[in-house]
Write a protein that binds this DNA or RNA. Structure first.
Lengths: 201, 201
DNA sequence: GTGCAGAGTTGCAACGAGTGCAGAACTGCA
DNA sequence: TGCAGTTCTGCACTCGTTGCAACTCTGCAC
């Protein structure tokens, strides 16, 4: 069982994410200060930064979990799967799972990514880091078919295609993600279109 | 002929970029303040921000030119070119041109992108904006073959492939600066593999 | 249960990026 | 030469972020 210390830490972390989510939704990102978030979670401002390295990071608390899930999907590939099949299921895994907090966060993130440059920058960095990690494992899974660079290119092409499609689908400022169902729809549409060329192989 | 005001403004802008480049090279990015840059260019600190919106932006002064060049390449496509051909020449155009200052800046940018998160974030944003613009024009050039979303996906796949491969190539300090021909070769090979399904587009 | 070492928390002071404002300096043009 | 519009600049302020030193709490041994 995790120690009291760990449980407490986890609880505080969650409290920070929830407080931040609430405040960002109410007042917006820019009009919420780190001090506000810390106060709402009943924590010293200074302490915020021992949980998250920056204000933006509080928006991506499950990034590591997602990457881990994708990596696990690669490890668990079927014996006959080609690299593309494996990559497909890994990326399906990334967009999976999570409770309602994760859903709220995801919707908020999409909106902020479209409107706040700092958040967009962080989102792209998180994405790029995830890509590299996935590429590493994809290469490990198919050492003969894909050298490291080719794996990087493949994952990049894949993620880039989806991102590029999604960007067009979201850049209409009117219909941002009112409800997360429509958000999911657009994500699916983007993936569908982006991956068409690979599917037909 | 451009007015005195314009010439002066252009000169100041260039002075800022040069001062920043020098200082970043000497002391590093983090240890250089905006006040340092402004002082080196003999300008008030406040005025820096009427030329560049942020400290990072001074590293991407020619971004607009590059995009314009790519767009021009799309407009100037040959009559028989398929979307993929046009995109290839447009992106070749992006990595073209510029004097030595541009070269120095580009090298500095590569280094800082690998080491300073804020710079990486900005670089990715610049790239994404460029992608969207190029996708827009590619769609305009091939309204029947490519809908807007598919154009976004195509451009994204391409840029993503190159970025993904480059990321792997650059994060290993061994195989980096040997010669830029071999780097180009490996890039081409990797993107070739990743984009095979798109080739017929 | 007591006490101690190490981990975690906190306020404080400081630095740098970025912004609004109001006045000074400059340019284009008559 | 003078005026109108633009640009430049210092000032004061907000906010994110960090180093530091004191303080509190938890895990653990005795």
């Amino acid at each position: 069982m995790p120690t009291l210390r760990d449980r407490k830490r986890e609880r505080t972390r969650r409290a920070l994410v929830e407080a931040a989510t609430d405040l960002f939704e109410q007042r917006g990102y820019e009009r919420t200060t780190v001090a506000d978030i810390a106060a709402a979670a009943d924590i010293g401002t200074r302490t915020f930064f021992s949980y998250f390295g920056s204000k933006e990071e509080v928006l991506f608390p499950e990034a590591d979990d997602r990457v881990r899930a994708a990596v696990a999907a690669i490890e668990a590939r079927g014996p006959g799967d080609r690299p593309m099949d494996t990559l497909l299921s890994a990326l399906a895994e990334v967009n999976q799972g999570g409770d309602e907090m994760v859903g709220r966060l995801a919707a908020l993130r999409v909106r902020l990514t479209q409107t706040v440059p700092a958040v967009r920058g962080r989102a792209l960095q998180v994405q790029l880091d995830a890509q590299r990690e996935i590429a590493r494992h994809l290469h490990a899974a198919y050492p003969r078919e894909l050298d490291e660079v080719a794996a990087g290119a493949l994952v990049g092409a894949f993620v880039g295609a989806v991102t590029g499609a999604l960007q067009v689908l979201l850049d209409d400022p009117d219909a941002l993600p009112a409800d997360s169902d429509e958000l999911g729809d657009r994500l699916r549409t983007a993936t569908e279109i982006a991956l068409r060329p690979w599917r037909s192989v």
